[in-house]
Write a protein that binds this DNA or RNA. Structure first.
Lengths: 237, 237
DNA sequence: TGCCGACTTCGTGTCGACAATAAAAATACA
DNA sequence: TGTATTTTTATTGTCGACACGAAGTCGGCA
């Protein structure tokens, strides 16, 4: 689909920042599906592109592999990890639990200053919705929930949740064309309710809202997938 | 305390298995506190020890850093990560939740064959308890719960839980000298109850048992730590 | 004698090259 | 013409060496 011809060279790196640059760049491109799942990741190609030797490239790839974003076949090749549709059940389960836990903890542990950041991101999300900027919605929605997780002050949950949300971004992007506007608008309202519950330190309320929110998103994705499947099933044979 | 003079050389590696050997060896030594938290990790030294060039060593270190087991100070040195006593609250919270979730899911999703593996590990744990083999207890207890998590069939929970349990092993080892036998014996019984609940597919029962089990362990560790603190507080000044 | 700056040293970050390995291509054979 | 075997090729895994950066060290100056 999308060509990867936009290989701009970024020649100058400070010593020690080469790997993290490569890591972050590739990470973004994988999450934003600029690099298609299953597509091969060539070390020499990246070496040329970033004007770095293969050693720092490799270290970045090792980090990406540790996060499961790429898969390395020993001695042969490394590819962008495929989206595991069979494991989607596990994914949704974990995602829902993390939505709930992080929102609960935010209600319990947040400090006043956290709210400002959350509010700002909610505003960004809202403007993205109004502008019908689907990609922006996906990104800002992610940031909004990460901010809530950080207000909850449990790094273990935040780490797992962030990884799950980023995984989710890959899936959402696959289906973003089918977005309509009624759901996103609803999300704005749900976000608003969640913020209120957090401010009121209403832990159980926050939990319930988060659970409902998660269910919304999960069933939305599920419906996209089954709709997609139906299309394939209708293919003339 | 323990010297790290036992640096045996392992010269022969199959191509591609060098890094994983280094990774696993170091990982074990860190978790088992053979490498003290805060102690420096020298690449050249490891290079000599494993009879490998620094490149594969480095890749192993990157993986360890991604898991948080070591900390790399850019351009300077890399050390074995310190145990974060201030973040212990977060740790216990996440640990408890994962105990509950994995046991719940095991009750819901296990297959008959899983039970055999769990039973075998429970037996190992029991023999370690009877032999008063504290180190064995810590290790087999970990394996027992990992097996339950795997029977629950959610890789996201299993991953996080495994990491948490391994972190916990470092903490437990710090205090293993203060172990008495009454608690471990109690754990054997609690494990037995958990297995029964899982077999009966009693999800809520499994949850409750896991929660109680986790609380036991957490309060045990907490009491060790506070006892330790009291000692320091009693120091003559 | 105490503080500031150049120098030395040690270890990491990066590089280019070589070796091994597995897939693909080419060849031989039935 | 189809299949088994050898050869080629592309790409990874590993290596030894160099270069940069930060501590610690030493000497100069007030």
């Amino acid at each position: 689909m999308a060509e990867r011809d936009d290989t701009e060279k970024q020649p100058v790196h400070k010593r020690g920042y080469g790997v993290s640059t490569v890591y972050e760049t590739l990470r973004n491109e994988i999450i934003e599906l600029k690099l298609a799942p299953g597509s091969p990741v060539d070390e020499q190609q990246l070496s040329d592109r970033f004007a770095l030797s293969r050693t720092p490239i490799r270290e970045a790839l090792v980090r990406l592999a540790a996060e499961g974003l790429i898969t390395t076949l020993t001695n042969r090749t490394t590819i962008v990890s495929n989206i595991d549709f069979l494991g989607l059940g596990e994914f949704f389960d974990a995602l829902t639990l993390m939505y709930r836990v992080t929102t609960r903890l935010a209600a319990a542990n947040h400090q006043a200053s956290d709210i400002d950041g959350i509010r700002a991101l909610q505003l960004q999300f809202q403007t993205a919705v109004e502008a019908r900027d689907v990609l922006g919605m996906i990104a800002t929605n992610r940031d909004f929930h990460v901010a809530i997780a950080e207000a909850g002050r449990n790094r273990y949950y935040t780490d797992l949740f962030t990884r799950l949300l980023d995984q989710g971004r890959r899936i959402l992007r696959l289906y973003y064309s089918s977005f309509n506007d009624v759901l996103p608008r609803q999300y704005v309202g749900e976000h608003e309710d969640m913020i209120q519950a957090i401010i009121n330190r209403d832990i159980d309320g926050a939990d319930k809202l988060a659970a409902a929110h998660a269910d919304q998103i999960v069933s939305q994705i599920r419906s996209y997938i089954t709709a997609d499947n139906r299309q394939t099933a209708r293919l003339p044979l």
